[in-house]
Design a protein around this nucleic acid. Structure first.
Lengths: 145, 145
DNA sequence: TTCAATTCCTACCTATTTAGTCGGAAATGA
DNA sequence: TCATTTCCGACTAAATAGGTAGGAATTGAA
């Protein structure tokens, strides 16, 4: 039931980009240093995020990464899915046809419903939270202190 | 974000015991066959559940396993914790002292709050569902069909 | 009293996933 | 032209997942 470092680092990096949104591209090295993440490892994660169009990059001097959209249009769920695959407690939940015929095994369905409920509660949190939400919370914490 | 087979099989086995609660000990072999789980592997899981006092066992002929308490007193969360460890998306959520001093890093807190919310939504589902709930749902599905 | 059934225990094993590292090619602004 | 920076493919060590193997101890019943 854990998020791997891919997901955790990825969210941290994207959050870092959200805090610096609108200031042009940020170098990988800068993010890696601020977030204390191995540069080479983070590079792999950014590659995945770029291919998924969540960030855009510029090569060469003064290059770097920036969000491909505004922070309120990027949810944590999207980031996690890109880096960790589908958000589901059991693989079978993804392929199942809810419209399929009755399986004749009420026990199986009962357990499926349980895992489905768990999945729903997880996606509810992750899909409803955006980078903008996090950014605002960070701001609130800063002024409160 | 997955439940491993330990958790999945464990819940299946406990659910099986719940459906047969009150009928004396059920042999591991029987459960393994009904649930299509490797007998030796399930044995390991039952050992953990026994040490955690979620099931009790009887050795020898006519022996087997049965729930250590009534189905309504055993939650899915308990089963998962025994077999998979703490329910938490990030290990750090467990050790953290919420009462500790302000960490001076509002960003970190923001992300922690996110993971905490995710954790809460997961434990809410798993701790509020008992084996008795599942048993009743199975019964409903059976008569509905 | 024997025996088949059954749990209990320790150790071992293999494949996959995780969390990286390494080295260099390609692009780009100054 | 050159320092900076992304891009790319391959490699690797450690941990975790998902089991197997073999036998000792216990118990109800014939």
């Amino acid at each position: 039931m854990r998020v791997s470092t891919r997901g955790e680092y990825g969210v941290r990096a994207m959050f870092d980009l959200a805090l610096n949104f609108g200031e042009g591209p940020i170098a990988l090295k800068t993010i890696a240093e601020r977030q204390v993440i191995s540069e080479h490892y983070l590079e792999q994660l950014m590659a995945a995020l770029r291919k998924a169009d969540l960030v855009k990059s510029r090569r060469g001097a003064q290059g770097g990464y920036e969000l491909a959209d505004t922070p309120e249009n990027i949810s944590i769920g999207e980031i996690i899915r890109v880096l960790e695959g589908p958000i589901t407690p059991l693989d079978c939940l993804d392929e199942e046809k809810t419209t399929g015929p009755y399986c004749g095994q009420p026990e199986r369905c009962v357990l499926r419903n349980l895992w489905r409920e768990l999945q729903d509660s997880m996606t509810q949190v992750l899909d409803s939270t955006t980078l903008e939400d996090l950014r605002q919370n960070a701001y609130r914490l800063e002024v409160a202190e």
